[in-house]
Amino acid sequence: MPVRRGHVAPQNTFLDTIIRKFEGQSRKFIIANARVENCAVIYCNDGFCELCGYSRAEVMQRPCTCDFLHGPRTQRRAAAQIAQALLGAEERKVEIAFYRKDGSCFLCLVDVVPVKNEDGAVIMFILNFEVVMEKDMVGSPAHDTNHRGPPTSWLAPGRAKTFRLKLPALLALTARESSVRSGGAGGAGAPGAVVVDVDLTPAAPSSESLALDEVTAMDNHVAGLGPAEERRALVGPGSPPRSAPGQLPSPRAHSLNPDASGSSCSLARTRSRESCASVRRASSADDIEAMRAGVLPPPPRHASTGAMHPLRSGLLNSTSDSDLVRYRTISKIPQITLNFVDLKGDPFLASPTSDREIIAPKIKERTHNVTEKVTQVLSLGADVLPEYKLQAPRIHRWTILHYSPFKAVWDWLILLLVIYTAVFTPYSAAFLLKETEEGPPATECGYACQPLAVVDLIVDIMFIVDILINFRTTYVNANEEVVSHPGRIAVHYFKGWFLIDMVAAIPFDLLI
Rank of each mutant, 00 (worst) to 15 (best):
E50Y: 08
E208D: 15
R176D: 06
A57K: 12
R356M: 05
A121W: 09
D102T: 05
P157M: 11
N45G: 03
H368G: 05
V341K: 15
N257I: 07
V138I: 07
L225T: 06
L87T: 08
H254Y: 13
P347I: 04
N117S: 07
F340K: 14
R176C: 05
V59M: 06
A121T: 09
H368M: 10
M308I: 12
P72D: 06
Q247A: 11
V59E: 01
G345F: 04
Y54E: 01
L86I: 15
A268F: 07
L210K: 01
S318G: 11
A253G: 09
V295W: 13
R77M: 14
A169E: 09
M218E: 12
P157C: 09
S182W: 05
W154K: 15
K21Y: 11
C105Q: 15
E214I: 05
M291G: 06
V195R: 06
S283E: 15
V115R: 02
H7A: 08
P168N: 05
H70W: 15
T65H: 10
S313Q: 11
C49I: 14
A78F: 01
R273M: 15
P10S: 14
L324Q: 15
I42Q: 01
R301C: 12
T162A: 06
M291S: 09
E118M: 11
I18D: 01
M218S: 10
S313A: 11
T329C: 08
S278R: 09
G71H: 01
S243W: 04
A32F: 01
A293Y: 04
L51C: 03
I31K: 01
P227R: 05
K362D: 14
I330D: 05
L311N: 15
G224F: 15
A303V: 07
P72V: 05
Q61K: 07
R356Q: 07
L380S: 04
D219G: 08
G53L: 05
P2T: 06
V295C: 15
P151R: 12
F98S: 01
V370K: 10
I42C: 02
C105M: 15
V180G: 09
L248I: 15
A80R: 13
V110A: 01
A160C: 09
C66H: 01
T367C: 03
E95D: 14
A303H: 04
R280H: 06
D199H: 01
H221K: 15
T337E: 15
I333Y: 09
A260R: 11
A303G: 07
P352M: 03
S266P: 05
P300H: 15
A156V: 14
A277M: 12
P10F: 15
I336S: 15
G120F: 07
P249E: 05
D136L: 05
A89N: 14
L349Y: 07
T337F: 09
A307W: 14
S255A: 07
A188K: 05
A79N: 01
L212E: 06
S239K: 12
L165A: 15
G6Y: 14
E230K: 05
A156M: 06
Q75K: 10
F68M: 01
S178I: 01
L69V: 01
R366Q: 06
K344V: 10
L225H: 06
I359S: 11
G103K: 15
H254Q: 13
S263G: 11
P297R: 12
V341Y: 04
A204M: 04
M218I: 07
D119V: 09
